[in-house]
């Protein structure tokens, strides 16, 4: 097996074993940390599909996290306090369906326009659409506007209870593994080959008779839906949502996770989110000015480390 495969197996095993061990040794805090890590890793994996493999630099991906989280918060709010009955529910299946559905729809509507553009235009337009959703939720006073919305009750699922930290973690972990396998399958399929071919040379693929626009749009929608699911999990984890979760700096952080770990790799986004969350945790416990070393680190990585952590692991000869 290649070195990257070993590392992937090792990291995923560690993520499976460590949190239960933390819980049994009385370090519940680390389970929380790991849950956040794994949920954000799902979002990063979804972003990697379009950013890494598809070459679409989306700067508005946090919007889907927000949509997913509000897809849990709003039905719970309506069920608890009354309002639009059609949207009122505590049911997890309904929440997830809503999160994935609305995210996919938003990705489709914005993707149709965004994907007509290229390069910097694409970066800025995705960013602007992300901000649009951000301001939309800020303006909705009913759901707390700027202050956010407390989710009183977690999604109700059969067999498991999301109120149990370990069960919530297990669900998130399984979702992450499925997401990674899904992206891997997509990328290795004929569809994925066209997607990656279009990243390298769009004209060639168009000349070969592929409608690359449709391929990109499909990938864009899949990625959005997947990230919406991560958002629904995050809503259940934090039991509080605010527009702050979907601002453009959050999108930037997601991009950073992908690049830090190594874009267009299976493990990269997971590794990136792990390092990101741990650095954030360590630095913010040392100083309130932790953004300063964090920003310097970010700049250093962009300037000097090409290919991210997976690039370092892979080494020069092993390709």
């Amino acid at each position: 097996m290649k070195r990257t495969t070993w590392v992937t197996v090792f990291v995923m095993l560690a993520l499976a074993i460590l949190p239960p061990v933390f819980l049994w040794t009385g370090n519940a805090f680390y389970v929380d940390l790991a849950t956040r890590l794994v949920i954000l890793a799902i979002a990063a994996v979804s972003l990697n599909l379009i950013l890494g493999f598809g070459g679409m630099v989306s700067f508005g991906h946090a919007a889907y996290i927000g949509i997913g989280a509000y897809a849990v918060g709003i039905p719970v709010y309506y069920e608890t306090y009354g309002g639009i009955d059609a949207l009122a529910s505590y049911g997890g299946a309904f929440h997830i369906l809503l999160a994935v559905g609305v995210s996919a729809l938003f990705a489709l509507l914005t993707g149709v326009i965004c994907l007509r553009t290229k390069g910097v235009y694409f970066i800025m337009i995705t960013m602007a659409f992300g901000q649009m959703i951000y301001y939309l939720f800020i303006s909705m006073e009913e759901f707390g506007g700027d202050d956010g919305l407390v989710i009183d009750i977690r999604s109700e699922l059969p067999l498991v209870s999301l109120d149990n930290p370990l069960q919530l973690y297990a669900i998130a972990y399984i979702a992450l593994v499925i997401a990674m396998l899904m992206v891997r399958t997509i990328v290795n399929s004929r569809f994925g080959m066209v997607l990656q071919g279009a990243r390298g040379n769009d004209e060639r693929l168009v000349t070969l008779g592929y409608n690359t626009y449709l391929y990109r749009l499909t990938a864009y929608v899949i990625s959005g839906a997947m990230c919406g699911f991560a958002g629904a999990l995050l809503g259940n984890f934090t039991t509080f949502i605010s527009p702050d979760m979907m601002g453009w700096s959050r999108s930037g952080e997601l991009m950073f996770m992908v690049i830090l770990g190594g874009s267009a790799t299976t493990l990269g986004p997971v590794l990136g989110s792990a390092v990101f969350i741990l650095m954030e945790e360590v630095l913010s416990s040392i100083t309130i000015y932790w953004h300063l070393p964090f920003g310097l680190m970010l700049m250093g990585i962009v300037l000097f480390v090409r290919g991210g952590l997976m690039g370092l692991i892979k080494g020069k000869g092993d390709k």
Partner: peptide, 27 residues
């Protein structure tokens, strides 16, 4: 240093710069 890179690197590099500038002002 970033001119020769792609736009993604510009975005990430200057995103880091934002954190540095904002925190410096905070300091």
């Amino acid at each position: 240093t970033l001119y020769s890179r792609n736009h993604l690197d510009h975005v990430l590099g200057t995103f880091g710069l934002i954190l540095v500038l904002d925190t410096s002002v905070h300091l």
